[in-house]
């Protein structure tokens, strides 16, 4: 049974890491989490990104965030990726599996997964 006391240990482990995390050149993964997104399955997509970014060791540079309705509800779940100096990339009709693939190929490998992009679906 987990107790709150474990948080004190997590705090000790993380104290030094937090300082490194702030201020680095950042990639932002933005998941649409309005009614349209949630209904279409955005929750598992978001959590797949959160988990996979951590598993692939990208948590220091990639920030996963949520937003409201982007305005293209018929393409939900929609995920936008913002990277310094690059054009915004929009993935549509996402699933948790596609999210894992995007983390591996795009966020880690540097090449967007063309077949899930908004222009190609």
């Amino acid at each position: 049974m987990k107790t709150l006391a474990e948080l004190a240990a997590i705090r000790e482990q993380m104290k030094d890491k937090v300082a490194i995390r702030t201020g680095s050149g950042e990639v932002r993964v933005v998941v649409g989490m309005a009614t349209c997104g949630i209904t279409a399955g955005a929750r598992p997509v978001l959590n797949a990104f959160v988990e996979e970014v951590a598993n692939q060791g990208l948590a220091d540079t990639v920030k996963v965030t949520q937003t409201g309705c982007i305005g293209i509800c018929q393409y939900e779940p929609v995920v936008e990726i913002y990277e310094d100096g690059k054009e915004k990339v929009t993935y549509v009709k996402m699933t948790a599996d596609k999210a894992k693939e995007v983390v591996a190929k795009h966020l880690k490998g540097g090449a967007p997964v063309a077949e899930y992009l908004i222009g190609n679906i």
């Binding site: 987990k2 948080l7 705090r11 988990e51």
Partner: peptide, 29 residues
């Protein structure tokens, strides 16, 4: 709020380690 009091202000509740803890904390209950 109880978790924040233990973690302090510099460790966000949405860091992966903390989220993983909260998931386990709830699932255990």
């Amino acid at each position: 709020a109880e978790m924040r009091a233990i973690l302090g202000d510099d460790i966000p509740l949405n860091s992966f380690e903390v989220l993983s803890f909260i998931r386990g904390f709830l699932e255990d209950q």
